[in-house]
């Protein structure tokens, strides 16, 4: 199969301890309705568990959702583990309450895009489509 025909595989993941899963679930549904293959990890995942899922599922992209303020600890750890596993081609996006100063730093670490509260799901769909196909 060519890349064009293959369904995009996305892991939607909730790292850390916060249980705010409204956004993650909405995004998971929206990506699925847009024709992607969505694997939702469920809550309270460690960076190790998330990276293992990404590798096992051979995902093209991973959408992280963090509303606990722990993103500057959890995201760098996930980026590091992905690189160690040779999976740094996976498109990483992040959604949640992320202050704008942190966004620049996260992008430097290789996060492809950050979506803050109010971002429409279509924006995430379009972005992931574009970034995976690029």
């Amino acid at each position: 199969m060519t890349a064009r025909q293959k369904k995009i595989r996305v892991v939607v993941a909730k790292p850390g301890l916060d249980g705010h899963d409204r956004g993650a679930k909405i995004i998971a549904r929206a990506l699925r309705d847009a024709g992607m293959e969505v694997i939702y990890t469920g809550l309270h995942q460690t960076p190790e568990q998330i990276v293992e899922t990404v590798i096992q599922e051979d995902a093209d992209a991973v959408g992280l959702s963090i509303l606990s303020g722990a993103h500057m600890t959890l995201v760098p750890r996930i980026m590091q583990l992905l690189a160690e596993q040779g999976a740094d081609d996976v498109v990483v996006t992040l959604g949640g309450t992320i202050p704008s100063d942190d966004i620049a730093e996260l992008k430097q670490l290789g996060v492809a895009e950050v979506f803050t509260p109010g971002a429409p799901t279509q924006q995430a769909i379009d972005f992931i489509r574009g970034a995976v196909r690029a």
Binding site: G16, L17, D18, T46, S68, G69
Partner: peptide
């Protein structure tokens, strides 16, 4: 606890 890393005193 390891699972608390980055979350202590945050929220």
């Amino acid at each position: 606890d390891l699972r608390s890393l980055g979350e202590v005193g945050r929220e």
